[in-house]
Simulated scan of single mutants.
Amino acid sequence: MQKSKKFYKLFSISVVILVVLLIWYYIFVMFNSTERAKQAENIKNHPFPVILAASEVNTDIMSLRGQLECLTIVRAPEMLKSVRHNLSNIDAHMQKNLDFIVRYCISKPQDSVALRDQYLVFREELNSVLLFI
């Protein structure tokens, strides 16, 4: 009888320890899998898509420059309408890419925010100039 009580007590303690260890292992695995999923998402979105978005911003800047150069040569009403339409498309595309860069850039996030803010100031100034043309 004494042996069975000792065995039952040892068995109960072992089961409790095993359950506690399993719960701890489950929490540990869930936390690590969540962290790995975040890292995988971060790797997926950075650096190559950020570099691609930055190159698209560069392309948009060149397109913007080309549209503004058109205004120095021809100021016909059709040309103004076309340039405003093209500038609107360029702006939408650039905003999308700048927002993506701000969201996913991890190397120098303050620089990406500064870039977007500078573009917003430029856009406001450009819009005020276009009102007079």
Rank of each mutant, 00 (worst) to 15 (best):
Q2P: 01
Q2M: 08
Y8I: 14
F11T: 14
S12T: 15
I17S: 15
L18F: 11
L21F: 12
L21Y: 08
L21A: 14
L22N: 15
W24P: 00
Y26G: 13
F28V: 01
M30K: 14
M30Y: 09
N32C: 02
N32A: 05
T34P: 00
E35M: 09
R36G: 00
K38R: 14
Q39M: 15
E41Y: 08
N42H: 05
I43G: 05
K44W: 03
K44Y: 11
P47N: 06
F48A: 11
I51K: 10
L52V: 11
A53H: 03
D60F: 04
I61H: 02
M62N: 11
S63T: 00
R65H: 13
L68P: 03
L68D: 03
E69P: 00
E69I: 07
T72G: 12
I73N: 07
V74F: 05
R75V: 03
R75Y: 04
A76Y: 07
P77D: 09
E78C: 00
M79H: 03
K81Q: 13
S82C: 08
R84A: 08
H85A: 15
N86S: 10
S88Q: 10
S88G: 13
I90M: 04
D91H: 10
H93E: 08
Q95V: 07
K96F: 01
N97G: 00
L98C: 02
L98D: 00
D99I: 08
V102W: 02
V102Q: 03
Y104E: 03
C105T: 07
I106Y: 12
S107L: 14
S107F: 10
K108F: 04
K108G: 01
Q110W: 06
Q110R: 06
D111N: 15
D111A: 10
D111T: 09
S112P: 04
S112Q: 03
S112N: 04
L115H: 05
R116F: 05
R116S: 10
D117E: 14
Y119M: 10
Y119C: 07
Y119R: 08
V121T: 15
S128D: 14
V129Q: 13
V129L: 15
L130Q: 00
